[in-house]
Design a protein around this nucleic acid. Structure first.
Length: 611
RNA sequence: GCCACCGUAGCUCAGCUGGUAGAGCAGACGAUUCGUAAUCGUCCGGUCGAGGGUUCGAAUCCCUCCGGUGGCUCCA
């Protein structure tokens, strides 16, 4: 067994091979099976609701969905019924028949299907595909038919429904989805389903989903008493319990010492600032929807800070800066508040108040490439210390609408890309995906059920230095605009903690474990010795306690096990006699009796190695 | 914010079509002193998310709000 590290299957840097694999999925039989299952589902739904309007139904990772406009909300019973009917249809061995048609024919065929008509318009004008994405060339329209159902579709599909295993499909859930993802358009009902080559594969998938639930940070957070979110305090606001706070403290201590030794200077800034500050910074322009309403203080408006940068900029501006002063690196664990719409809140991952491990670099143009190298290497090292090696990197470049000198954009993008290459980080290019004020690198990882979360971000800002008219005096005696880089490595303490919990399923490495060792006396007469052992552990710097309850040893082990405490030290008559402890690990391994000193050596080593 | 579902003791959950609540775990107390994943017993614990309505009577039905879950949208 070993330790409970989780190996992420889809948790890799997107390399070219992976991209190729992704393209291959769309040509795979599994893709055709899923896409075809979506059609079969649409048929079953249309039979049940003859007036239903159908939208689109693609294959997706792990399954498929289809969007419908229905006369009433779907119930779980409906899903069972639809699923049963799907099996019947599949057993009918209906062939899928492709037919090319003209736009005119298509309009006639789908005259009662307004969503299809809209798609036809988009396709015909050569403008947009089914997702509303622009098309390069005018496509040939085609339909696919099986049994009684015909859909506007480019395919590909299975030859006939016998290629779908009726025992390897399952309807998973129904959810609302805006037509074309636009919240101004109608809300449709989306049915999600999953489909596999065979029953075994599907069951394996379902088992994985169950497993993912078991490592959900919200559940573990409660079970291990790490944090809570309570109604009366407010949605999206986190209470860190002592054990969670201990992990945070260890994380922050490590973070602080790494920053200190790498040339950062720490700053502290307030939680609120005057409206005029946020006007100057531009936040009231482009970030207002995410800011809490202002506080009125003696007739002046103050806002809770959604970001730390304006404060750091003011520290920069507190005196005249020389080119010799640069680079400056200001770091702060800055607590910010952002209004997030209620529907998007999610445990620790998406909250309304959080602490960013923020920093701002100010440098000269000639220092910029090195500064990026430095920050990228620094982030990778920090992330590795927490056991993260696999993530996706994204490089986002200049969008159509942007501010700042194009030459600066070019230089910054080049610096970012060069650093990624230098450090061997494979990345995906998100052309035009940068913010209006600068290009950036994002590092993202997946949570327990494959949702992607942003961790680190390194982004240039060409806007704020202008807004605040930042300067330094160059060798030429003239003022120059410094380059400014925002960066957060862990992202926010809250989200990072959530990701940590899921990554380790609560079995944190020893150096992070809030309780590292529990001493378990077998009977009450071993209590004194147990307490003595705890004292030794504590003076050696371990976080330890004795389980003094009048419970049986088995119960104490079980509880320690469930609390994922790394070391259990059982002490009974034999241990007392030999001045030993009997070590048991949460993995179930049982190294057995050893001298206390021997255990301390082992523990010290593992803590130093951060495993 | 939108769609759907959900909200009963600290936790997990039962309580059918309306007749004012129950289990296990946790907790307290007592007994037990035991060698690698749950010792036994007793007790405590809920104005059924909040407010309003229908009804002789609401945890059960209706409305509003709050919160959660899964999606959508958003994510500087």
């Amino acid at each position: 067994m070993g330790r409970e590290f989780f190996v992420w299957e889809n948790f890799v840097i997107l390399s070219e091979e992976k991209m190729a694999a992704k393209e291959k999925y769309e040509e795979s039989e599994l893709f055709r099976i899923r896409h075809s299952a979506a059609h079969v589902m649409a048929q079953a739904v249309l039979e049940k609701f003859p007036g239903a309007k159908i939208a689109i139904g693609p294959a997706i990772d792990d399954g498929f969905y289809y969007d419908f406009d229905l006369p009433r909300p779907l119930t779980p019973e409906d899903l069972v019924e639809i699923e049963d009917r799907m099996r019947q249809i599949i057993r009918g061995k209906f062939p899928f028949v492709r037919k090319e048609i003209s736009a005119e024919e298509a309009r006639k065929l789908f005259r009662d299907q307004p969503y299809k008509l809209e798609l036809i318009d988009g396709l015909e004008s050569g403008g947009f595909d089914e997702n509303g994405e622009p098309l390069n060339e005018k496509p040939i329209l085609s339909t696919f038919s099986h049994d009684t159902f015909t859909d506007l579709c480019r395919g590909p599909h299975v030859k006939d429904t016998s290629e779908i295993d009726p025992e390897a499909i399952k309807l998973m859930s129904v959810a609302g989805a805006y037509w074309r993802g636009d919240e101004k358009r109608p809300m449709l009902q989306r049915i999600y389903g999953t489909a596999w080559y065979n029953k075994e594969e599907m069951e394996q998938y379902l088992w994985k989903l169950e497993e993912a639930k078991r490592r959900d940070h919200r559940k573990i957070g409660r079970d291990l008493d790490l944090f809570s979110i309570v109604d009366e305090v407010g949605a999206g606001l986190i209470l860190w319990h002592p054990k969670g706070a201990m992990i945070r403290k260890i994380t922050e201590d490590f973070w602080m010492s790494e920053h200190e030794r790498s040339g950062y200077q720490f700053v502290y800034t307030p939680h609120i600032g005057k409206a005029s500050l946020w006007e100057t910074s531009g936040h009231l322009n482009f970030f207002k929807e995410n800011m809490f309403s202002p506080l009125d203080i003696e007739g002046q408006q103050y806002y809770l800070k959604p970001m730390n940068c304006p404060f750091h900029i003011h520290i920069y501006k507190s005196q005249l800066r020389s080119y010799r002063d640069l680079p400056l690196r200001y770091a702060e664990k800055g607590t910010v508040y952002r209004y997030e719409r209620s529907g998007v809140l999610h445990g620790l991952m998406r909250v309304r108040g959080f602490t960013q491990d923020d920093a701002h670099h100010f440098c000269r143009e000639d220092q910029m490439p090195h500064e990026i190298d430095f920050v990228l290497e620094f982030s990778l090292n920090i992330l590795r210390a927490f056991g993260f090696n696999d993530f996706k990197a994204y490089l986002s470049t200049k969008p159509a609408k942007s501010e700042g000198d194009p030459a600066r954009w070019k230089a910054a993008e080049a610096a970012l890309e060069a650093s990624l290459k230098r450090y061997g980080v494979e990345y995906e290019l998100d052309e035009g995906g940068g913010a209006f004020y600068g290009p950036k690198i994002d590092l993202k990882i997946n949570d327990a059920i494959g949702r992607e979360w942003q961790l680190s971000t390194i982004q240039f800002d060409f806007n704020e230095p202008e807004c605040f008219d930042m300067n330094y005096i160059g060798e030429d005696g003239l003022p120059h605009r410094p380059y400014m880089v925002h960066r957060a490595l862990l992202g926010s303490m809250e989200r990072f903690f959530g990701i940590l919990i899921e990554h380790y399923a609560g079995a944190f490495p020893v150096w992070l474990s809030p309780i590292q060792a529990v001493v378990i006396p077998i009977a009450d007469r071993h209590l004194d010795y147990a307490k003595k052992v705890v004292e030794s552990l504590k003076s050696a710097g371990l976080r330890a306690y004795a389980d003094e309850r009048s419970e049986r040893m088995n119960a104490k082990i079980r509880d320690a096990q469930n609390q994922k405490i790394p070391y259990m030290l059982v002490v009974g008559d034999k241990e007392i006699e030999n001045n030993q402890v009997a070590l048991r690990l949460r993995s179930g391994e049982n190294p057995g009796p050893m001298a206390l000193e021997a255990f301390l050596d082992k523990a010290r080593q593992e803590i130093a190695k951060k495993i």
